[in-house]
Design a protein around this nucleic acid. Structure first.
Length: 289
DNA sequence: TGCCCCCTGCAG
DNA sequence: CTGCAGGGGGCA
């Protein structure tokens, strides 16, 4: 579920609230959710938090790392020991009770306890996500990490063009291929292509340098906007930030989940939904050629 | 490069 | 009941 902007939002919160905190316990509630030597994190302090594409990395001193991937439905929720009760929070468009105060839930897969009394819950409905405990070297050696491509703002438009002109597959799949470009997922790929007025199924090799430059700008634009609005929380409310609150980018979706609605360009087009690479794909047939 | 799979849960 | 969900790995 979460893409770069959602993970970035959580990263910034972790840096603010978790750095310096000592882990006193890690409960593994589901065997698939935590991999590695659980005991080795006890007594360690969080010394830093990084993001690599859609993955989070908590530094536990110089050598130990705690890598977290949310995949489709992961969440990290921090419940501070001195927190105030929160009421009528809006989750998925509906006011709810204080669900954060009722954690753990049936989807809680791991619980961190800190010396301060703070508790951090790793929730993951679908159990695709994971927490890996490993050394910094083991982390660097993960095939997934070794193959991870650059983030969009770390390459030039020209480099994006060079990367595109060698691929015959649909441009949307190129944008989402983490080995070519990291951080872009289904929501932001759809919206970036709308910004650039490019049909998602166009073979990447068919786009020219001008389109590549525009697409580069568009990808960065929607990612930055996603970060600005604290990520996207769709109606199912699976993405939540560290406070258990949703983001707001969904109020600014260009195409994602907007099928059969009017194109925001008011060009008379209607957003159409198709499938590409097995993923829902949204675009305006009128302005995206 | 294209499929199927990993899982749970929800809408249609 | 089927299909679908913001991700990625493994297989042909």
């Amino acid at each position: 579920m979460p893409e770069l902007p959602e993970i970035e939002t959580v990263k910034l919160q972790l840096q603010k609230y978790l750095v310096g905190q000592e882990i006193t316990k890690l409960d593994q509630l589901h065997p698939k959710s935590v991999q590695g030597e659980v005991k080795s994190v006890v007594g360690k302090k969080v010394t830093g938090v990084e993001r690599k594409g859609k993955m989070l990395v908590l530094d536990l001193g110089k050598e130990l790392r705690l890598a977290v991937h949310f995949k489709m439905s992961g969440q990290l929720i921090l419940v501070r020991h001195n927190r105030q009760k929160v009421e009528n929070r809006v989750v998925g468009g509906h006011p709810t009770e204080d669900w954060v105060g009722k954690l753990p839930s049936k989807h809680t897969r791991a619980i961190f306890q800190f010396r301060s009394g703070d508790l951090m819950y790793f929730n993951d409905q679908r159990i695709f996500g994971w927490i890996k405990i490993l050394t910094s070297k083991q982390l660097a050696d993960l095939p997934f990490i070794k193959k991870l491509g650059p983030e969009p703002w770390d390459i030039t438009p020209k480099q994006l063009y060079e990367l595109m002109r060698k691929r015959k597959k649909a441009i949307k799949l190129v944008l989402m291929d983490q080995e070519l470009l990291s951080g872009v997922g289904n929501i932001y790929a759809n919206d970036a292509l709308w910004e650039a007025k490019i049909d998602p199924k166009t073979p990447a090799v068919k786009l020219d340098e001008v389109q590549a430059k525009l697409l580069h700008q568009s990808v960065i634009k929607v990612l930055r906007e996603g970060i600005k609005y604290g990520g996207a929380t769709a109606a199912d409310a699976k993405y939540m930030n560290l406070d258990g609150l949703g983001g707001h980018y969904q109020d600014h979706f260009r195409t994602y989940s907007r099928d059969s609605q009017k194109c925001l360009r008011r060009d008379g087009g209607v957003i159409k939904k198709t499938t590409l690479g097995g993923r829902g794909t949204y675009f305006c047939p009128k302005c995206q050629k």
